[in-house]
């Protein structure tokens, strides 16, 4: 039976924890609002970009581009986007679980998998399991800017195409040339948390490379026949495709940022509520104990008075 003082101490401690979780919830809520606005503003660009790209790729069927071609190799790269900080519920656990499953599956299909991680949580997860990482990047969450996405995209595209400016394309055949370079990938997958609402985040696995243009749904959106390009179709593709990767990564970063804040808000809300429940329970216990001690003292007084008679 804990003494009155023990209970009192626990109540105070839980109260201060509650205050912290409450503050964190508030901060997450305001950050979430900002992140949400940004993602809603960035979505039209990403969607339009994809639409332009898809219709272009559909028209330019004959044109092969290194970012569009399926190579059929057995090297895959997985880019996992996690958050830098914890205390956001099962967000990171979910994404890492899915990512691990995905990697295991790929390995079963004889793929060679290299992992590229963004976010401290993901990095630590794979490090603890002694899984080698091709590349890591931390310290991005909270300040997602376009140039970050640009850097990441450039690195990935470079690793994918392996067109080292100092190494002109191997005239004998690309495959032999590729085999020399260990770090190459034949496809790149992107794993991130998609922001649905403050309560809901969904882990999505998307194929980033090679780019698979979607069929344009509305036929009238595609203009067949005469179509002009300035300067020329291959040149437009050359700049548009890497750009598309940048935009995809930028969007994924924003999505996971918003998801993180949303998840943290929900988690902290739950924590605050749990603390409240606990305080109530403990207060009840405290009052009971107090009552019991008063009764005990009364009995003692009565008992003492009785004995004096």
């Amino acid at each position: 039976m804990p003494t009155l003082r023990d209970i009192k101490r626990r109540i105070t401690s839980i109260k201060s924890t509650q205050q912290i979780t409450k503050a964190m919830k508030m901060v997450a809520a305001s950050k979430l609002r900002r992140a949400q606005e940004r993602i809603f503003e960035a979505r039209p660009y990403a969607n339009k970009m994809f639409a332009v790209l898809s219709s272009l790729a559909m028209r330019a069927k004959g044109e092969e581009h290194s970012l569009l071609a399926k190579r059929g190799g057995l090297k895959t790269e997985v880019l996992v986007i996690t958050s830098d900080r914890g205390l956001c519920g099962a967000l990171n656990a979910n994404i890492l679980k899915k990512a691990s499953e995905f990697i295991k599956e790929k390995k079963k299909d004889n793929y060679e998998v290299s992992i590229n991680v963004i976010g401290r949580k993901g990095r630590d997860f794979f490090r603890r399991r002694n899984i080698p990482l091709r590349k890591t990047r931390v310290g991005l969450s909270g300040k997602v800017i376009y140039s970050n996405a640009q850097e990441i995209a450039m690195e990935i595209v470079k690793n994918y195409t392996a067109e080292d400016p100092t190494h002109p394309k191997d005239p004998v055949g690309d495959s032999t040339h590729r085999a020399d370079r260990e770090e190459l990938s034949d496809e790149v997958h992107l794993v991130y948390n998609e922001f649905k609402s403050a309560m809901q985040q969904r882990v999505v696995i998307e194929k980033l490379l090679p780019i698979e243009p979607q069929k344009v749904e509305k036929e009238e959106e595609v203009y067949y026949g005469e179509f002009l390009y300035e300067p020329s179709a291959p040149e437009v593709l050359d700049t548009l495709l890497p750009k598309h990767i940048e935009v995809q990564i930028f969007r994924a970063l924003l999505e996971s940022e918003a998801s993180e804040q949303g998840a943290r808000m929900t988690a902290m809300d739950n924590a605050t509520r749990n603390a409240k429940d606990m305080i109530e329970k403990l207060t009840l216990q405290y009052n009971k104990a107090r009552q019991a001690s008063i009764t005990k003292e009364l009995m003692e007084v009565v008992g003492g008075a009785e004995a004096l008679k």
């Binding site: 332009v52 272009l56 203009y223 005469e226 179509f227 002009l228 390009y229 300035e230 300067p231 040149e235």
Partner: peptide, 19 residues
């Protein structure tokens, strides 16, 4: 401002894509 110089578009323009 297109890649090959400034261009104007009026309704009914031939479809094209430019940098």
């Amino acid at each position: 401002p297109g890649h090959e110089g400034e261009f104007g578009v009026l309704p009914g323009h031939t479809p094209f894509l430019t940098i």
